[in-house]
Every structure is written in C-alpha cells, then in structure tokens.
Amino acid sequence: MAKNFGYKILPGESIDFDRNDKLIARYLVEHEPSINLCIGCGSCTATCSTGHFTDFNIRRMHTFILRGETKHIKKEIQKCMFCGKCQLVCPRGVNLRNVILTINRAIEHLG
C-alpha cells in the first residue's frame, strides 16, 4: 500500500541545528572571534577569484559551518587559494584568511 502511494521517506533537507555537531563552529569562534562580526553582505564572495570559476562560496561556507553543516567543507576549503582578496573588502573587518586557516586546523584536530 505504502509502496504504491508514491511517497517515500527522504532525509530532511532543513538545517537541524539541534542535532548538528557544532564542534568546528565552536573552534572557529574561539580561535577567530571576528567571524561573529559577519553581516552576510557577500563582498567576500563577490571578490573571490575562486568563486567566479568554481561553485566555491566563502560566505556560504563559513555560514554553513556556524550552523554546524560541515559535510562538504573538507573538500570545499581546498579550493581556496589563500589570496586574501576577500579580507580586503570585508566591511566588518572579519579576518577571513585566519578564518580559513582556522577551519583547516579545526578539520585537522577534530576530523
């Protein structure tokens, strides 16, 4: 009956903040607190060379991390060229290069 009904159970697509593991988020906020100053303006992404040629999005990535969504970050963060352009345009003075370094370190330490 259920089989013919046409529905199946899909894994949830919403961000399950309660369940998500915020270890990396905590590590990031502790070691580079300026990440808390982000207002999501997108200047970093707009200026990022990598972001123009790949689907890499630095703003989306660090926002996802703060929400505990860390599934793809290991692969994603490899795309960054560490050029620091993003940091030059940030209106809130977020230390983005160190954000990226810290995320890398967090992945190393916390897996």
């Binding site: 303006c41 200047s43 707009a46 703003r59």
Partner: peptide
C-alpha cells in the same frame, strides 16, 4: 538585490560592470 557592491569597472562605451554577491541565491553576480 541583497548584496553589497564589491567593485565596479568601466566598459569602453562608459557603461559600468557591477560585481556583488547575490546573497539570496548564493552566487556571485
């Protein structure tokens, strides 16, 4: 469009190219 202008460049015909992130779609624009 929800995104802060990051930079602007001029075309030979004096029109302007704006670069921002369209933060609501999550892509550079």
């Amino acid at each position: 469009i929800r995104g802060r202008l990051s930079e602007c460049a001029e075309n030979p015909d004096h029109s302007l190219v704006l670069k921002t992130e369209d933060t609501l779609t999550g892509r550079p624009l």
